[in-house]
């Protein structure tokens, strides 16, 4: 029974004037805060606060077996949770299609950018590292795709890589440990379309009235994952403009991650 704080007309009227309810330009992000190492028990972790959206990603590393067709390659398992404490729009129970979509889109970007090279995750012939990324929504106010990708990328980038003690078959998680080999650093930019106007980083009120959404994930050089969502559509010209915008925006996001880790 979420009470919308703004009506559709109010948001649309503002957009026609090129304005947004929080005073932002159509193509700007909200203020972003990023903190790494927030969960010391996890091998890597990061909290992202984007406006009132708050997300937490944790990386755990374990030992598993390689896929039969990919000997010597490790596994990456990414999932997202829309925790019911984050909004009264989220319900307890099995993951919703929205949560699964969110987890899969973030996963694709990280995987395609080879952010963690799976070939570097082999231990021996029978064992490989399994890297779990869990992305938690703590408070929902729109744009979970970008906040989630940012949290996941920062958690991975800052994660310590455990060592395997083959003799005792033990994982050493503390002490003097290195980091994972990082390939492309992926971030994403999500755009919403309301009454024909396109905006970056829609907040919860804007998402409630959005006709279409597109998430564009890229690293420095290439597009790595995209997902168009909701019932509306984008023109090819819009797509081209937004791809350019995503490459532009990702520079700052990458800088932010690097600044919080080194």
């Amino acid at each position: 029974m979420k009470i919308r704080t703004v009506t559709e007309d109010f948001i649309k009227d503002l957009l026609m004037k090129g304005q947004r309810e929080d005073g932002r330009q159509p193509m700007s992000y909200r203020n972003i805060e990023l903190k790494t190492g927030v969960i010391p028990n996890a091998e890597g972790s990061a909290q992202v606060i984007m406006g009132n959206t708050k997300m937490l990603a944790g990386v755990k590393v374990g030992v598993g077996e390689p896929m039969p067709d990919k000997p010597g390659e490790g596994n990456l398992i990414t999932s997202a949770e829309l925790h019911p404490m984050a909004s009264d729009q989220f319900e307890s129970g099995p993951p919703s299609p929205e949560a699964i979509e969110l987890g899969r889109v973030i996963d694709r970007g990280i995987r395609a950018a080879d952010m963690i090279n799976s070939k570097s995750l082999g231990i021996d012939e029978e064992k490989v590292w399994e890297v779990f990324i869990d992305i938690y929504t703590l408070n929902y106010d729109g744009n979970l795709f970008d906040a989630g990708t940012l949290a996941a990328a920062a958690a991975l980038y800052s994660a310590r890589m455990p060592k395997y003690d083959a003799e005792n078959e033990e994982v050493i998680r503390e002490g003097n440990l290195g980091r994972f080999k990082i390939g492309g650093m992926v971030t994403s930019s999500t755009f919403g379309k309301i009454a024909g106007k396109v905006i970056l980083d829609p907040d919860g009120n804007e998402e409630a009235f959005m006709d279409a959404r597109i998430t564009i994930a890229n690293d420095e050089n290439y597009l790595r994952a995209m997902q168009k969502g909701l019932g509306g559509s984008f023109s090819q010209k819009e797509l081209e403009t937004l791809i350019d915008a995503s490459f532009q925006k990702s520079k700052d996001l990458r800088k932010l991650i690097i600044s919080k880790v080194e």
């Binding site: 704080t5 703004v6 009506t7 007309d9 109010f10």
Partner: peptide, 8 residues
Amino acid sequence: LGAGKLMS
């Protein structure tokens, strides 16, 4: 109520 902003 017409177009406007609702605050909680």
